[in-house]
């Protein structure tokens, strides 16, 4: 929805336009992503301090961080629609979330170590030093839970965690949400499922529903009742 449509949507209600526009027109730049500023997303003072504390800490070593970046890009690469996991700064998100949820620390650190040891056995070098083909060769051993060998179970479990965190980190980012085609989080006037979608699913709003439900033109009118 463009700014003009937002204004139109707003005009039908007796809303605090200033408040709303400052929300939906806000540039979502790097500053707000960093979320280090007071009030950036409605933190209490205690929550703000906690965020700042976590952000000042460092958990992964440079080598671990680099391996996470490589793995995340294998899981979510750039394609015709959107950029890669590293374009969406997924590794930064994973670095934050393991500090926020310490239960994730051991499985990830241990999993990274498992990966390096496996790589050492197979290729005589750490995962990040392996060639692109070798990395894929190793990932193929742990990326398919139903056909992976029992001896690689620990790696499978680690990769499942990495896959989940990478997907969350990517699709909750700005480029990920655009890729997914999420259209909401903005003022609008919901008027039901689009006609072509209804047709596709063989559904329709019956007369009773249409009669009972909100009519877009009534949105700004104060409700009155007969009695």
């Amino acid at each position: 929805m463009n700014r003009r449509d937002s204004l139109k949507a707003l005009a039908v209600g007796t809303v605090s336009v200033g408040t709303l526009l400052s929300s939906c027109d806000k540039k979502e730049g790097k500053d707000s992503v960093a979320a280090g500023k007071k009030g950036a997303y409605g933190r209490t003072p205690e929550e703000q301090l906690n965020d700042e504390k976590l952000m000042a800490e460092k958990f992964f070593t440079a080598a671990e961080f680099s391996t996470i970046t490589i793995l995340a890009d294998i899981i979510i690469p750039k394609d015709d629609t959107s950029g890669s996991a590293s374009d969406a700064k997924v590794a930064d998100f994973i670095e934050f979330i393991v500090k926020d949820q310490p239960d994730l620390q051991l499985p990830l650190r241990g999993g990274l170590r498992w990966l390096d040891v496996k790589s050492l056995k197979l290729f005589k070098k750490a995962f990040s030093d392996a060639t692109a083909e070798q990395r894929i060769q190793l990932v193929d051993l742990i990326a398919y839970p139903e056909k992976a060998l029992p001896e690689n179970a620990a790696g499978v479990s680690f990769f499942d965690t990495m896959r989940g965190l990478t997907a969350t980190g990517f699709f909750t980012s700005k480029i990920g949400m655009e890729d997914l085609g999420y259209k909401g989080n903005q003022p609008n006037a919901w008027d039901g499922v689009p006609d072509d979608v209804l047709k596709q699913f063989g559904l329709e709003y019956d007369a009773k529903t249409l009669e009972q439900c909100l009519k877009a033109e009534d949105r700004g009118k104060i409700m009155t009742w007969d009695s």
């Binding site: 408040t19 709303l20 979502e28 992503v33 979320a35 007071k38 409605g42 952000m55 934050f96």
Partner: peptide
């Protein structure tokens, strides 16, 4: 909720470094 310092409405998931996870608020950051 209209106080900009307290507002969470119309924020994007990526405005939270934990992407809205429920670590600090049981129903999520927002």
């Amino acid at each position: 909720p209209a106080n900009p310092e307290q507002q969470t409405q119309l924020k994007w998931s990526y405005e939270s470094p934990r992407r809205g996870a429920n670590t600090t608020r049981p129903f999520g950051d927002f």
